[in-house]
Amino acid sequence: MAETNLQRVCNVSDLETNWGEVALIGDHQYAVFLVKDGSVFVTDHKDPASEALVMARGIVGEKDGKHTVTAPLYKEVYDLETGECLSDKDFTLPVYETSVEDGVVYMTATA
């Protein structure tokens, strides 16, 4: 069975609404997004299509009521909650369970 562990990511005050930031935890880069309703999402920073470390530079938006990020290189649109690619079913963006406690963003990583 996979072990889960809670990782501190950043303070919510470090984030700008509808903008991505990069968090380096260990040797892995994550993209962190604060959306306009106050929800926080954490995904891989690596773009599944190009394999470039660029997802935090994507365009944050909404599609069909879902919070999304559009990859900056090839413009795939990903659901920030599920990682499903809404524009090309060949790709999935890894996403991580997040929580906010006392103004601090945490993510659950599976080892």
Results as ranks from 00 to 15, higher is better:
residue 11 N to E: 15
residue 106 Y to S: 08
residue 11 N to W: 09
residue 110 T to L: 03
residue 41 F to N: 09
residue 79 D to T: 01
residue 65 G to Q: 01
residue 56 A to D: 12
residue 14 D to S: 14
residue 101 E to F: 00
residue 71 A to W: 08
residue 72 P to M: 06
residue 52 A to C: 03
residue 27 D to Q: 12
residue 78 Y to H: 05
residue 48 P to V: 04
residue 17 T to C: 13
residue 48 P to C: 03
residue 21 E to T: 14
residue 50 S to G: 06
residue 6 L to T: 15
residue 58 G to Q: 05
residue 58 G to C: 05
residue 89 K to F: 13
residue 108 T to W: 00
residue 23 A to K: 13
residue 20 G to F: 11
residue 72 P to Y: 09
residue 6 L to V: 15
residue 52 A to N: 08
residue 100 V to L: 08
residue 32 V to Y: 07
residue 92 T to R: 09
residue 96 Y to R: 06
residue 9 V to E: 13
residue 55 M to R: 09
residue 81 E to P: 00
residue 5 N to Y: 15
residue 8 R to P: 12
residue 77 V to H: 06
residue 37 D to R: 03
residue 41 F to V: 01
residue 25 I to S: 12
residue 79 D to H: 04
residue 54 V to W: 05
residue 31 A to F: 11
residue 84 E to F: 04
residue 91 F to G: 04
residue 27 D to V: 04
residue 42 V to F: 06
residue 90 D to G: 14
residue 87 S to L: 08
residue 14 D to V: 10
residue 90 D to M: 12
residue 52 A to E: 13
residue 33 F to G: 10
residue 13 S to T: 15
residue 8 R to K: 15
residue 69 V to I: 04
residue 99 S to D: 08
residue 17 T to G: 08
residue 106 Y to H: 13
residue 30 Y to H: 10
residue 37 D to V: 01
residue 38 G to M: 07
residue 94 P to W: 04
residue 111 A to D: 10
residue 105 V to T: 02
residue 95 V to Y: 00
residue 77 V to Y: 01
residue 73 L to R: 07
residue 47 D to Y: 07
residue 98 T to H: 02
residue 27 D to T: 11
residue 33 F to V: 11
residue 49 A to P: 02
residue 34 L to H: 06
residue 36 K to C: 07
residue 7 Q to T: 14
residue 21 E to F: 12
residue 31 A to D: 12
residue 99 S to K: 13
residue 18 N to G: 07
residue 84 E to L: 09
residue 11 N to K: 15
residue 63 K to V: 05
residue 111 A to G: 10
residue 50 S to T: 15
residue 54 V to N: 11
residue 20 G to E: 11
residue 94 P to C: 06
residue 13 S to K: 14
residue 50 S to M: 09
residue 22 V to L: 02
residue 15 L to K: 06
residue 5 N to L: 15
residue 71 A to Y: 10
residue 10 C to N: 13
residue 103 G to A: 06
residue 47 D to M: 01
residue 107 M to D: 04
residue 52 A to S: 09
residue 97 E to H: 02
residue 28 H to I: 07
residue 88 D to I: 13
residue 49 A to Q: 10
residue 69 V to S: 03
residue 63 K to H: 05
residue 29 Q to G: 02
residue 79 D to F: 01
residue 28 H to G: 05
residue 84 E to A: 14
residue 32 V to M: 11
residue 11 N to F: 15
residue 84 E to R: 08
residue 97 E to F: 01
residue 34 L to Q: 12
residue 65 G to K: 00
residue 66 K to V: 03
residue 99 S to W: 01
residue 105 V to E: 02
residue 57 R to L: 13
residue 39 S to C: 02
residue 45 H to E: 13
residue 105 V to W: 03
residue 4 T to M: 12
residue 72 P to W: 12
residue 94 P to M: 06
residue 38 G to F: 04
residue 26 G to I: 02
residue 44 D to F: 01
residue 100 V to Q: 06
residue 74 Y to T: 11
residue 27 D to Y: 10
residue 85 C to M: 08
residue 85 C to T: 11
residue 71 A to M: 07
residue 85 C to S: 14
residue 17 T to V: 15
residue 89 K to T: 13
residue 106 Y to N: 07
residue 48 P to L: 03
residue 7 Q to I: 13
residue 11 N to D: 15
residue 96 Y to M: 02
residue 109 A to K: 11
residue 87 S to V: 09
